[in-house]
Every structure is written in structure tokens, then in C-alpha cells.
């Protein structure tokens, strides 16, 4: 499972970086999305994959009955998903405005500030 997920992460990073190198604004934002998915999966797998129950101690007990799964990576990923959702939504609005203002979605045409 780890190997499979590692390949998936590699593909996500590779695809994301490839798309970011393209000149198209839409591909750029898809690439950014893939990159953040790759990072999220990386947290998930780096923290270790194991099966376990919910980390809630049953009523009346003092310890876990079965080895629980680690809840923290999921909390971290959820937070970063929320953040990347907000940032991607903003980037979408920004890119749309830019497209309307500049009249092209070719990044090579946006050289006004490069001097």
C-alpha cells in the first residue's frame, strides 16, 4: 500500500509541476491543485498507514481497547485542504480577472512587470 501511494504521490507531484511549467493559466491552477493534493497525501502516508479504531476511549474504561488510528494527520490534512480550497478559489478569481484585463491566458504575454 505504501509503495502504491508513493507512486501516486510521485505522479501527482510530477503532473503538478509539469502543468505549472505550461504557459496556460488554467493549466497552472490545475497544477497547483495537484501539488497540494500530493503534499496532503504525503502527510497521510508519512504518518504511517495502519488500521485502527477511532481514538475514543470507550465509556467506563481508562485505556484504549484496540490500538487506535492516529487522528492528527487527518486533522492536519483537513486543515490544509480547507486552506488550499480558499486559496485556489481566490486564485481562480484572480486568474479570471487577469484574463479579462490582459486578454490572453498565455503567461508569456504577461511581461509588463519584468524589466
Amino acid at each position: 500500500m505504501e509503495v502504491l501511494l508513493a507512486v501516486v504521490i510521485g505522479t501527482l507531484y510530477g503532473g503538478g509541476l509539469y502543468l505549472m511549467m505550461r504557459r496556460n493559466l488554467v493549466q497552472l491552477i490545475i497544477g497547483l491543485g495537484l501539488l497540494s493534493h500530493g503534499a496532503n497525501l504525503l502527510i497521510f502516508i508519512a504518518a504511517g498507514l495502519r488500521q485502527g479504531g477511532a481514538p475514543i476511549i470507550a465509556e467506563g474504561k481508562k485505556v484504549f481497547l484496540t490500538l487506535p488510528a492516529d487522528p492528527l494527520p487527518q486533522a492536519l490534512i483537513l486543515t490544509s485542504i480547507v486552506i488550499s480550497f480558499a486559496v485556489t478559489a481566490f486564485a481562480l478569481v484572480l486568474f479570471l480577472r487577469t484574463y479579462q484585463e490582459v486578454g490572453t491566458n498565455d503567461l508569456d504575454e504577461m511581461k509588463e512587470t519584468d524589466t
Binding site: A86, F90, V93
Partner: peptide, 13 residues
């Protein structure tokens, strides 16, 4: 609120 601010401003374009 944030979601609808974004969706509405995109929709009004």
C-alpha cells in the same frame, strides 16, 4: 459567507 462572496462575484462577471 466566504464561499458565497466568491461564487457570487464570479457569477456576476
Amino acid at each position: 459567507g466566504v464561499l458565497l462572496t466568491l461564487v457570487f462575484s464570479l457569477g456576476e462577471e
